[in-house]
Design a protein around this nucleic acid. Structure first.
Lengths: 223, 223
DNA sequence: GCGCCTGCCGGGCAAATTGCCCGATTTTTG
DNA sequence: CAAAAATCGGGCAATTTGCCCGGCAGGCGC
């Protein structure tokens, strides 16, 4: 870190990247040296340019931010990654930090927050923006556990299929289980997440980031 | 429009506004003269500065973009509003245009698209970014009607309550109806939207923008 | 006025699903 | 190894769903 710190910028919106770059370039000690628009490209570029810091969004097409964080950290356990996203959501932050991110700043933060977080991380600190600090604190007191903590892998799997609009029977067929087992598990999931209806289930899943963080969208009709 | 066209920029993320302003200021014929961070502020500022063009995001805290568009257009039917949002979603675009927007550009578009759309609108044209063009075309052929078109007001009301995690019985109580009626209506809604499960219902509603466009989020614990 | 259509309200009833119990394996963990 | 947790699935009452029905009110054309 002799001269300026090198930065890899990852966001799927070119326009958005443009803005951040302008913002960051105002800092003489920061230098954006590469940009990527999805997780795969981010991983590839990271290995190539070895930036001092990665600033990236979570929600991207293809394989998303979380996956990219994990892969990058696997390749270089010392990688410093700052998540910069619109999601003011404790669950996302927890997942990101666990995946190996060193910071989480929301786009609602004042512009300085991003710059400050960048410097903090470069100095080895963990950086969270104020709103996420608050969300995390709240999630502590209200004790809404992140789904991945409370659900077993199998339950998680079934939940994912449910959110893909699969019926209980379809899931049974896919996993080679009795429909009864799936129905039971489905009940268990709802109990664990503390919801009563299917509708609440989807909404909770949304907030928890099970759905929505990655590109879930069922494929567009091929025409 | 003798000198540069005046622009009001509306987006809840200060950082994001920063970026767009930089982008727009590169055009000598465009001048950002005001910024707002939510619908109410946008409306207030519009009346005050009377910009030639409003560029705004849809999803914002407080009263959202759609509502702001309607109010601004009500106050000045000649107002030119360009929606600039991340939602690559035909239903959103339809609603925005119907509310009175003159253009709809997604943030995934190349940076030039925004500038071009701005000029197009200033010349009285309707501007849609290429991806939305495509989404709208698709939604035509696949004929997935916007929910507001196919649902009766009552049905819409019940759908909204369902999405607020109310049970069938709770809704019956709220609206003073028989639970049976609500159940029947619920069935009708699903039939009209062509979905089989509650889960699919929520997901479709999401895509249609019934939920999600405006800030739906149940209030944060007051502490 | 008289049909006619559409939206709204709700009964009825078979079929399916949910909610919640249970026990039997297998794996994980201390 | 012993305890705990996870996975799988049966059973069964209670509820809900899916789909039929008829009745009533309001708007619209004639």
């Amino acid at each position: 870190m002799s001269g300026a710190a090198t930065i890899l910028l990852v966001d799927d919106h070119a326009i958005v990247r443009e803005g951040y770059r302008a913002l960051l370039q105002q800092q003489p000690r920061l230098k954006v040296v590469a940009e990527a628009s999805d997780g795969a490209e981010a991983y590839r570029l990271f290995k190539q340019v070895k930036p001092d810091l990665v600033i990236m969004d979570l929600t991207m097409p293809g394989f998303g931010g979380l996956e990219a964080i994990k892969r990058i950290r696997q390749w270089d356990p010392a990688a410093r990654i700052l998540v910069f996203t619109m999601h003011q959501n404790a669950a996302f932050a927890v997942q990101a930090i666990r995946a190996g991110a060193k910071g989480y700043v929301t786009k609602s933060s004042p512009p300085e927050a991003l710059v400050r977080a960048a410097f903090d991380i470069l100095q080895g600190k963990i950086a969270l923006s104020a709103d996420i600090d608050h969300e995390l604190a709240l999630s502590r007191v209200t004790e809404t556990p992140v789904a991945t903590d409370v659900l077993t892998p199998r339950e998680f799997e079934i939940l994912r299929l449910l959110l893909a609009e699969k019926s209980t029977e379809a899931i049974a067929a896919i996993l080679g289980l009795s429909p009864k087992t799936v129905a039971n598990t489905r009940y268990l999931i709802k109990a664990k997440l503390g919801v009563a209806s299917d509708i609440a289930l989807v909404l909770v899943a949304l907030r928890q980031g099970i759905l929505g963080a990655e590109g879930e969208r069922d494929e567009i009709a091929p025409l």
